[in-house]
């Protein structure tokens, strides 16, 4: 059986069909959760943000216009919800490094051999610094950067999603990459030194 396309689903949700809403959630939950994770930086807030997005989708389903694709509409709601979140909540995501590990690093399926521990430490080190570099960005910088770098949207698509001019998207991206490059400079130097040895 062919999957109903998004337009049909949205039409059904507008008629009050909760099953159609469930289908839409199942279809997009991963994409929205991952975007929420990239924006918020931790699992708990990502879950909360992504669910808030689906609630907003349901609440504003009558305002959906078919000119934009459903996923770009969902992205837009995610980004707006993230940008509008209370400042207090955002400050909470800046956790100390010690609490980062459990939340952010995937647990291996089985216990690794002793020889792997150095590799694991390296990976943890790298991942925590990458995550911290992302946290150095303003919300707007982080938003355009993750949409570009981790979700592959074009500059024009990002501009439409966050509702700013393309020039603004480029400026924000420039700033984001420059800031993170500076934050990660020491890491690159260290990696190059290790490779040389």
């Amino acid at each position: 059986m062919q999957k109903p396309d998004d337009a049909v689903l949205i039409d059904q949700i507008q008629q009050g069909d909760i099953r159609a809403f469930r289908k839409l959630v199942e279809r997009y939950k991963k994409r929205i959760y991952y975007l929420a994770y990239d924006l918020s930086g931790n699992h708990h807030d990502a879950e909360d943000l992504s669910q808030e997005v689906f609630i907003k989708v349901y609440q504003s389903i009558h305002r959906y216009r078919p000119e934009s694709s459903p996923y770009s509409w969902l992205y837009r709601i995610t980004v707006n919800t993230f940008i509008d979140q209370k400042r207090k909540k955002i400050l909470n995501i800046i956790k100390p490094l010690s609490t980062y590990k459990a939340d952010s690093i995937p647990e291996p399926a089985e216990r690794s051999a002793a020889g792997d521990s150095e590799k694991k430490a390296d990976s943890y080190f790298l991942q925590s610094h990458l995550q911290n570099a992302l946290k150095k960005l303003s919300k707007r910088e982080r938003t355009v950067f993750v949409l570009k770098h981790y979700h592959g949207l074009s500059i024009a698509e990002i501009a439409a999603t966050v509702d700013v001019a393309e020039g603004t998207v480029k400026s924000l991206l420039f700033r984001a990459i420059r800031k993170m490059q500076q934050a990660l400079q020491f890491l690159r130097t260290e990696m190059e030194t290790r490779e040389a040895i």
Binding site: D103, P106, Y150, F174, I177
Partner: peptide, 17 residues
Amino acid sequence: EMLSALPLLAKRQRPEP
């Protein structure tokens, strides 16, 4: 300088819940 940061940033992994 900026270009060299991009491959490093691509190494970021998300945990799978």
